[in-house]
Amino acid sequence: MNWQEVKKAAKEKLKPYCRVCPVCNGIVCAGEVPGMGGVGTGSSFKANIEALNKIKLNLSTIHDVKEPNTSVEIFGQMLSLPVMAAPITGTTYNMGGAVTEDVYTQEVIAGSLMAGTLGWIGDGADPLMYGSGINAIKQNNGKGIPIIKPRTQDEIIKRIRIAEEAGAIAVGVDIDGAGLITMALKGQPVSPKSPKEIEELVKATKLPFILKGIMTLREAEIAYNMGVAAIVVSNHGGRILDHTPGVAEVLPEITEKLKGKITIIADGGVRSGVDVLKLLALGADAVLIGRPVVVAVFGGGKEGLKLYFENIKNELKQAMLLTGVASVKNVPQNILRV
């Protein structure tokens, strides 16, 4: 099995929901929500790609780096690379249903572990979505991270308890899911959270609490002040609000103030190991990858995902070698051409 074979198989299973384009950049699928595209004009999805593409690296080959180290510790877990699978649900209405929610989450968690990293699972209007992910985490000794929609406080805490019982490594809320109309239509309202509500959720568990969907320094500082363990700088893959900036545009403002104080994870438009290195140079501690993980799992199951992560790791190592970076734990900003 090679990556081209995985993509070919995925293209058949995902049509017409995803074309598995040569470059996954949100242009062809703009406005296709449900589906794999970005909301409205698709501007926010495309902004993630464009923001990363604007960043250039300084080629450097006169240095002492021979064997770059890609391993990193996140939430007490040693990972072979600073990349994890983003929480994605809706295999039926977003991806056509050729792979069920149960199978998808099982393959994401297992494939991530096979590659030496972690899979995150999501939540949705259908209770099977969160339940499938929790079952996958249980079956893999708790090695996964569940992310819950911004439901009412009681409903979130109920799901936090389920995550704790499953032995999950951490738990969180994708607060940018506050605008999901499908949740409200199915009698499961979601909404923004006040700082006090965030603090209540943090105090409701001993697990590291993650807030996913932060796109401004102001809200990153609120999360930090409320005791959040980690934030994910993310615009929800461009699927929530049209015309937001790309993640790589806002990330430096956040890391400049909060690097080292709170774990900062970036999620938006990562398509290569070079992209990973760019976000680490901008101050991220790790990154999430979404849509390509779907392609990997639909096209090759857990083995396809393992292959994909191995490709990303190899690209990352090569980029580190050619920019003089010894470890992903310390990526200097001066490798970027500004």
Rank of each mutant, 00 (worst) to 15 (best):
S194E: 07
S194P: 03
K196N: 08
K196C: 00
K196T: 13
E197A: 12
E197H: 03
E197C: 08
E197Y: 02
E197F: 10
I198C: 11
I198V: 15
I198W: 02
I198Y: 02
E199G: 00
E200S: 14
E200F: 00
E200C: 01
E200G: 00
L201V: 03
L201I: 03
L201G: 08
V202W: 08
V202S: 10
A204C: 09
A204Q: 12
T205W: 07
T205E: 07
T205G: 11
K206V: 13
K206S: 14
K206T: 15
P208L: 05
P208F: 11
F209W: 05
I210Q: 08
I210W: 02
L211G: 02
K212I: 01
G213P: 11
I214N: 12
I214H: 07
I214E: 04
M215S: 13
M215T: 15
M215D: 02
T216I: 08
T216G: 04
L217P: 04
R218H: 14
R218T: 09
R218A: 13
E219F: 14
E219C: 00
E219A: 00
A220K: 12
E221L: 12
A223G: 05
A223P: 02
A223T: 01
A223L: 08
A223W: 03
A223M: 09
Y224V: 01
Y224I: 01
N225K: 15
N225E: 15
N225S: 14
M226G: 01
M226Q: 15
M226I: 00
M226W: 00
G227L: 12
G227A: 12
G227N: 10
G227E: 09
V228L: 01
V228P: 03
A229F: 08
A229K: 15
A229E: 10
A229H: 14
I231E: 04
I231L: 09
V232E: 03
V232L: 10
S234G: 06
S234F: 04
S234E: 04
S234H: 03
N235S: 07
H236A: 14
G237E: 08
G237C: 08
G237T: 12
G238A: 05
G238W: 08
G238S: 08
G238L: 05
G238F: 11
R239I: 07
I240Q: 15
I240V: 07
I240L: 04
I240G: 06
L241P: 00
L241G: 01
D242R: 10
D242C: 03
H243Y: 15
H243E: 09
T244R: 14
T244V: 00
T244F: 05
P245L: 12
G246I: 03
G246Y: 11
V247R: 03
A248T: 06
